[in-house]
Structures are given as C-alpha cells and as structure tokens.
C-alpha cells in the first residue's frame, strides 16, 4: 500500500471510530469516482460505486442550487431516513460521505466530519498531483494497459 492509500484509510477509519453508530465512510471525488471507503463491519454489503456516485452528485447538485440562491458555501448535506442517516461534506476536490444508524449525535458527527474533511482535502491534493496530467506523458505501464483494453474491446 502506498503512503497515500494508507492516509485515506486512516482518516476514514478514525471517523468510524470517533462516534458509535457510524457504519460506513466513503470518499468520492467530484466526478463521482469512489476513491476510498471503510466499513465498521466487513460484511456490510453495499454497492459502494453506486452509493458514491449518488453522494457526489447530490452534494454537487446542492452546491449548484446554493450558488443560484446566493446562500454562501455548502458545508454538509444531511439525509434522514426511517432507519438511518447519510451525511455528505465537501472535502476539497472530494466529498466525504458518512452513513450512520438512526440515533446518533449529530453535533459530534458534524465536528468529526469537518475535521476529517480538512485533512482529506490536503491528502487528495497530493494524490491528484501525483497523477499524470491528461494527455501528458504516460508511463509505459499505463500505455500497455490502454493497449490491452483496446485489444479487449476489439474482441467483443
């Protein structure tokens, strides 16, 4: 595991441990791509990519809404359900999503999320800077992977 991967996992695990009732944490970027996720229980079966895509889209759509209403920056989106809650907070280039039980200390969760979001924003900046810019020099390994995908598609 690279240092960045470990950093993401550590921050997300800390969030889960910080409050009882947190079941899952997911970090997505603003294009809907799930970057990292940690569950309290390893057998918590969810379609993480799908959940992440919705979390990112909902947060970004709320942000758009806020822009047209001129109500300042969006901090947290809260969704309350009969049996649980979903929170989403902006984390720089990403969105931190936390899934909880119904009865949780909302104040504490907000605090924890704001702190974690600030840390995640920093690590995300480093992580995204590591990657080659689009259409700029790719590594040989990457080119090989793209060629393999091309070959796979020609087959079908």
């Amino acid at each position: 595991m690279s240092i960045t991967v470990r950093q993401f996992d550590e921050i997300l695990s800390d969030v889960i441990k910080s409050e009882p009732g947190i079941k899952k944490t997911i970090l997505v970027d603003r294009t809907g791509l799930t970057i990292a996720h940690v569950s309290k229980f390893s057998y918590y079966p969810v379609d993480v990519d799908g959940i992440g895509a919705i979390a990112s889209a909902v947060f970004c759509a709320s942000e758009e809404q806020g822009k047209s209403l001129d109500v300042g920056d969006l901090t947290i989106v809260t969704s309350e359900f009969g049996d649980g809650k979903i929170f989403a907070a902006g984390a720089g280039k990403g969105v931190l999503c936390v899934i909880t039980d119904k009865e949780v200390n909302i104040g504490m969760i907000r605090l924890t999320m704001m702190k974690a979001a600030a840390e995640l924003a920093k690590v995300l900046d480093e992580f995204m800077a590591e990657k080659p810019a689009v259409a700029a020099g790719k590594t040989d390994a990457e080119r090989e992977e793209l060629r393999a995908a091309l070959g796979e598609l020609e087959k079908g």
Partner: peptide, 11 residues
C-alpha cells in the same frame, strides 16, 4: 440542466 452540468464533470 443543473443536474446535467454536474454529471458532465470530468467526462
């Protein structure tokens, strides 16, 4: 329209 703009990010 607003939703479409969000989904288009990073296409």
């Amino acid at each position: 329209r607003g939703q479409r703009k969000v989904i288009l990010t990073g296409v």
